[in-house]
Simulated assay, not measured.
Amino acid sequence: MESNTVVKALSALAQASRLEIFRALVVAGEAGLTPGILADALKVAPNTLSFHLKELMHADLVSQKRDGRNLIYRAQFDRMSDLLTYLTQNCCQGEPCLTGVVASLGVCVP
């Protein structure tokens, strides 16, 4: 994953509403959600939601597919995985991370 792609994805997620929308789509899984369901669940105005979904799509974190009369938005799990891999690629200076409580806190001890 290239640095500019990572910056674009992180920039898209660095806004509270977009992060909340993305997390809702991750929870929804492959089934995805319609804009109406998202707007109701997150209490976001439809035009505001549309703007944020466009930003997430531009960052390639969310996909859109038409299903009859509905648009279905889904998290791009492969892109999310690539981003997480990029961010943790050099964790613990190349040494295996400890498991258990220390690892669950996100602390790496070589």
Results as ranks from 00 to 15, higher is better:
1 M>H: 04
3 S>M: 08
5 T>Q: 13
7 V>L: 12
8 K>G: 02
9 A>P: 10
9 A>M: 15
9 A>R: 15
9 A>Q: 15
10 L>D: 08
11 S>I: 00
11 S>Y: 03
12 A>I: 02
13 L>S: 05
13 L>K: 08
14 A>T: 08
15 Q>I: 07
15 Q>F: 05
17 S>E: 14
18 R>P: 02
19 L>W: 03
21 I>P: 00
23 R>G: 03
25 L>V: 03
25 L>K: 09
26 V>F: 07
26 V>A: 12
27 V>N: 04
27 V>K: 10
28 A>W: 07
29 G>P: 03
31 A>K: 12
31 A>F: 01
32 G>L: 03
33 L>Q: 15
33 L>E: 15
35 P>S: 08
36 G>L: 11
37 I>H: 06
38 L>S: 09
39 A>G: 12
39 A>T: 12
39 A>R: 11
40 D>A: 15
40 D>I: 07
41 A>I: 00
45 A>T: 12
46 P>F: 02
46 P>E: 07
47 N>D: 14
47 N>P: 13
47 N>Y: 09
48 T>P: 02
51 F>S: 05
52 H>W: 01
54 K>I: 08
54 K>W: 04
54 K>Y: 11
55 E>F: 00
59 A>Y: 00
59 A>L: 06
59 A>M: 07
61 L>D: 14
62 V>F: 09
66 R>N: 11
66 R>G: 06
70 N>M: 05
72 I>A: 07
73 Y>I: 01
73 Y>F: 14
75 A>W: 09
75 A>L: 10
76 Q>N: 15
77 F>I: 03
79 R>P: 06
80 M>L: 15
80 M>H: 11
81 S>W: 04
85 T>Q: 06
85 T>H: 05
89 Q>T: 14
89 Q>S: 13
90 N>T: 12
91 C>I: 10
92 C>K: 04
92 C>R: 10
93 Q>A: 12
94 G>W: 05
94 G>C: 04
95 E>S: 13
95 E>L: 06
96 P>S: 12
97 C>D: 14
98 L>E: 14
99 T>F: 01
99 T>I: 05
99 T>E: 12
100 G>Q: 04
102 V>I: 15
103 A>P: 00
104 S>Q: 11
104 S>D: 11
105 L>R: 02
106 G>S: 11
106 G>C: 09
106 G>I: 00
108 C>F: 01
108 C>Q: 10
109 V>P: 00
109 V>T: 09
